[in-house]
């Protein structure tokens, strides 16, 4: 199956690969996995004092599309607020990377990873998720 140019570009030059210290108060960690392909994805966000995501890291064991999806998301979330980051949808990722239908689950994985990272950060800080959703709406 042919990968799109954007997938290949992210696969060959992945952005923001690596890890933050999980226990750091300013870090939110999302771990997700896709049984269908055995992919495992860790996505972390670092939130600044202004409540915006100042940096992001990922580590993904999976196919090119899964790596490209997580790489893209780490780029997208920088500078965003938590509520903005949580509104990223897999369809936007799939569209940006021109993923074929059989690889849509890779974009679902990336969406779930950023949501999990945001939820982890909120849990650490006792933030109410509903409140954020209301603000985002």
């Amino acid at each position: 199956m042919a990968y799109s140019d954007k997938v290949i570009e992210h696969y060959e030059n992945p952005r923001n690969v690596g890890s933050f210290e999980k226990s750091d108060e300013s870090v939110g960690t999302g771990m997700v996995g896709a049984p269908a392909c055995g992919d495992v994805m860790k996505l972390q966000i670092k939130v600044g004092s202004d409540g915006r995501i100042e940096d992001a890291r990922f580590k993904t064991y999976g196919c090119g599309s899964a790596i490209a999806s997580s790489s893209l998301v780490t780029e997208w979330v920088k500078g965003k607020t938590l509520e903005q980051a949580a509104t990223i949808r897999n369809t936007q990722i799939a569209e940006e990377l021109s993923l074929p239908p059989v690889k849509i689950h890779c974009s679902i994985l990336a969406e779930d990873a950023i949501k999990a990272a945001v939820a982890d950060y909120r849990r650490k800080h006792g933030l109410d998720e509903k409140e954020d959703e209301a603000k985002a709406a």
């Binding site: 771990m31 997700v32 996995g33 896709a34 049984p35 269908a36 495992v40 860790k42 580590k59 064991y61 689950h105 679902i108 994985l109 779930d112 990873a113 999990a116």
Partner: peptide, 22 residues
């Protein structure tokens, strides 16, 4: 439905262990 395609919320310790094994 085993939801291989859509269920991504595996237990965190399990995923951590899978990542370490990889």
């Amino acid at each position: 439905d085993v939801a291989f395609e859509t269920n991504t919320a595996m237990p965190a310790e399990f995923l951590m262990q899978q990542m370490e094994l990889r």
